[in-house]
């Protein structure tokens, strides 16, 4: 299992905590998913609400690591201030850095992302950058001090799976020693299995489980698919080929007319 800023995770599943029908279903989904990381966020709260306190208690009871995000931030400054507030609230140096570039696609702004990553790394954060699968962007983020990269599969919340297989394979091949996480766009367990089969170290998803008709059942499905994908990668899959090759021996076949 890959090392994420000195931490070896018990499972390659990072699961979001948003959009579940109820806190009880969130808890059940987590328990059945074997997820090792929960993503969380920070949002405005009025003094009388205290919703943050009860949510934090629920997350602590899950017994998983917490990865706060900077979701919804469009500027470097906004992302940095959000990360600083999250570090204090959740008492962790881990941050899932999102600097969004466009409201329709929610795609990362690569220029803002590198700038914010550099500043946060200098401040002692362990940055998990939500990025496109671009190789040069990956290089720049590593130069900025990131030790983990999180390319998208497809836009957040779409469930379209791995949109650019070539790009993702290329990224894996170029950075064999960097922990890589597919973050966003996964809609089905088979897509998560595909990511693990390609050698990705982990997947991060939320909507696929939370918005399923039965989130707990879907959490189990993802857990099994992820285990299968990881096992398949370790088993060293065969190379695909264009021409057919008989699997049954030809030698010794009866000559029949």
């Amino acid at each position: 299992m890959a090392n994420f800023y000195g931490v070896e995770l018990s499972s390659p599943l990072m699961l979001g905590t948003s959009q579940y029908p109820s806190p009880a279903i969130l808890t059940d989904a987590f328990r059945n998913s074997n997820a090792s990381v929960a993503t969380v966020s920070v949002r405005r709260e009025a003094g009388f609400e205290k919703a943050g306190n009860s949510f934090w208690k629920l997350i602590q009871e899950l017994g998983v690591r917490v990865l706060p995000n900077t979701a919804g931030c469009y500027s470097v400054r906004e992302a940095i201030t959000t990360a600083q507030m999250a570090r204090e609230l959740f008492d962790t140096s881990w941050v899932k850095l999102e600097v969004i570039g466009h409201p329709d696609t929610l795609q990362p702004d690569p220029f803002g992302l590198v700038e914010a990553a550099k500043l946060l790394n200098q401040e002692g954060f362990d940055v998990f950058p939500y990025m496109t699968e671009d190789l040069i962007l990956a290089e720049r983020l590593l130069e900025a001090g990131c030790e983990v990269l999180m390319p998208w599969g497809s836009p957040i919340g779409t469930g379209l799976g791995l949109n650019n297989l070539y790009g993702l394979r290329s990224l894996r091949a170029h950075f064999p020693d960097v922990p890589l996480v597919i973050d966003a766009g996964l809609g089905l367990p088979s897509q998560a299995a595909q990511a693990l089969e390609m050698g990705y170290d982990a997947v991060l998803l939320n909507t696929a489980v939370a918005r399923a008709g039965d989130p707990v059942k879907m959490a189990v499905a993802f857990a099994r698919a992820i285990e299968a994908g990881q096992l398949a990668y370790k088993a060293d899959p065969m190379e695909p080929r264009d021409m057919a090759a008989p699997s049954t021996p030809v030698l010794g076949k009866a000559f029949l007319r």
């Binding site: 979001g16 905590t17 948003s18 959009q19 579940y20 969130l26 993503t39 969380v40 966020s41 920070v42 949002r43 405005r44 709260e45 003094g47 609400e49 919703a51 943050g52 306190n53 949510f55 934090w56 997350i59 706060p68 995000n69 979701a71 507030m85 609230l89 959740f90 957040i156 939320n206 909507t207």
Partner: peptide, 8 residues
């Protein structure tokens, strides 16, 4: 003023 919230 922000508090812990659900996130993806």
């Amino acid at each position: 003023i922000v508090a812990p919230q659900q996130g993806g």
